[in-house]
Write a protein that binds this DNA or RNA. Structure first.
Lengths: 94, 94
DNA sequence: CATGTTATTCGATAATCATCGAACTAAGGC
DNA sequence: GCCTTAGTTCGATGATTATCGAATAACATG
């Protein structure tokens, strides 16, 4: 990847992190230290489930989270590799 | 500062970093290792000077840069402390 | 198969954003 | 005092965004 593309990727990641609700989601996932479902996270944020789904889609799209499907639920967890590459030390600063 | 406020501050910083042109500005400043004027940076990005001024204002507003005024020019430099606090290791990953 | 749970998709809407050129301010040099 | 240089501010505009509720899809369980 050249610098142009790297910058675009970086700015996309920052854009995804620039919403307070998404930041909270990440903190919730990080501090829980386990997988969580959409509903579980959404409950803590008091926003509609469609909005939660929207945010989760964005987080997934830039590789910040990983999704495991099981039955009707989807379990989300942080993708530590992406954080390590683009935001070294960030998670620990939360 | 409580967590709510910290998250707002964080998301503001990320929002400022989520624009490719502002990211390039930061890279330019970082790699040059010195102060630069608005015009100097703007030249490298081929955007209008009003747009550059707009971006610089945002960077300053969240404390990512520092401005020193001298004669008609304004010299910009990165505020390393803000990076260290909110994005440890980020500059080195550029 | 009917019902309930979990999540996604689809408009719609109000808000925010990046960009420009033009007008303006401030400072120097002639 | 004028012109030049360096930045800022001010609309205006087109694009993107966050949010919601309603409709839909996928799966499980009675």
């Amino acid at each position: 990847m050249n610098i142009e593309q790297e910058d675009l990727k970086r700015s996309e990641i920052f854009k995804v992190l620039s919403d307070p609700n998404r930041l909270r989601m990440i903190r919730i996932l990080y501090q829980s230290g386990r997988e969580m479902t959409c509903g579980e996270v959404g409950e803590k944020l008091s926003v509609s489930k469609s909005t939660v789904s929207y945010h989760f889609k964005l987080l997934r799209a830039v590789g910040l989270t990983h999704t495991r499907k099981a039955a009707q639920s989807k379990y989300l967890s942080l993708n530590q590799q992406t954080f390590a590459k683009y935001l070294p030390g960030f998670l620990d600063s939360l």
